[in-house]
Computed example of a mutant assay.
Amino acid sequence: MSADFRDALIVAVFRKGDGSDCGNYRGIFLLSTMGKVIATILLNDSSRCLYSCSLTLSVASPVKRHNGHDLQHTANPGGHCVFLLRGHNFHRLLLLLLSVVAAVSGFSHFPVSGFLGKQVVLPCTYKGNVPVSDLQVIWGTPKRELLHKFINGNNDLTEQDPRFRNRTKLFKDHLEQGNWSVLLSDLRESDRSQYECQIYKIDKQIHLEKVDSVDLFVTGDSPVPVSGFLGEQVVLPCTYKGNVTISDLLVIWGTTKGDILHRVVSGNDDLTQQDPRFRNRTKVFKDQLEQGNWSVLLSDLRDSDQNDYQCQIYKRLETGYYWEQFDLVHLSITGCTGTLELMLDFIVDICSCRRRCGK
């Protein structure tokens, strides 16, 4: 088994009391995603085995010793033989298995794309009712590189990987609402990786509450420039040439800061997560989706609409949604509407002509 799957990063979590006392810290293990998958497979097999054997303790043979642990050799009705840890060691094994269940059951997966030199939001949300002061949040890579850490209501970047220095930021005013997303700035090719957001509840013990996994793709393409006028409407272009049917596509329009502009799932609008400032102002061309036109019409343009927008297209497979395409559009807003601007130009031309003619 690869060392990346097997090894874990041990992070010291402060509980309470004197910070100089090592006894006031508890170690937690950060496993890679593939390590968790393997652990889940082992857990499922072990759980079935332990359950079947626990029903046949009456057929036990004498106690044996193995690597310092008490072992009890047990035969089950199917004719298979297993070794069970006895006494408190058995319960410790069960607790270990349960902790693996907790680590894996909170796992979710989300793809995100960004452009070189720009910034991107890696999403992570928590719906529990635990106060921010009782949470520890660790952002990192499967290679155990620390992206961002938050504990006891404050950032703790003492162990942050040097290549992320001065490039990460949490949305402090949104933490109470459960938004633990991190903003990563000045994107580089080396940032393309998988990132994990691990959320822990801290009381007398450390409890893993949730794990979110984000795949970050970084591209060097330049954004498509688009211009619009205040109060008018504009089309943000996005074309998909793949052969995946609409029912198997997820299309997300949003800003590079993570604000949802428009979302289409299996050909149907899903605006439940749409940013309030875009409410009733967006529209996709439903009759052109089959031809690959995933452009969005943005109406009633405002100054605040000037931004970078990304069109992210994902295809659905049995295991979830996978990234297909990523387009970036830069929208510029000018202060005069098109009609008014033409009228002003016309008036200026007339005045210039009169001056030249001496009228």
Rank of each mutant, 00 (worst) to 15 (best):
V218K: 10
I199D: 02
P225D: 03
N152G: 06
H207E: 08
L147N: 02
D161C: 11
R165W: 07
P223T: 13
D161V: 02
K241T: 13
I206N: 15
V214S: 12
T245A: 14
G178L: 05
K149F: 07
L183S: 10
N152M: 11
L175F: 03
W253P: 06
L216F: 12
E189A: 13
S227Y: 05
N152Y: 02
D203Q: 06
L170R: 06
N166F: 04
L187E: 00
G178K: 14
S222H: 04
I206G: 09
F171P: 01
I199Q: 01
V211F: 09
D186M: 12
Y200A: 05
Q177I: 03
V226K: 09
D156K: 12
K210D: 07
L157P: 04
P162V: 10
Q160Y: 03
H148D: 06
L216N: 09
N155E: 14
L146G: 01
Q160H: 14
N243D: 12
F164T: 01
K241A: 15
G178V: 04
I252N: 14
L146Q: 10
F217K: 14
L184A: 11
K201M: 05
R188V: 05
V226D: 08
L184V: 12
E176K: 15
L157V: 04
K143C: 04
P225V: 02
S222F: 04
H207S: 04
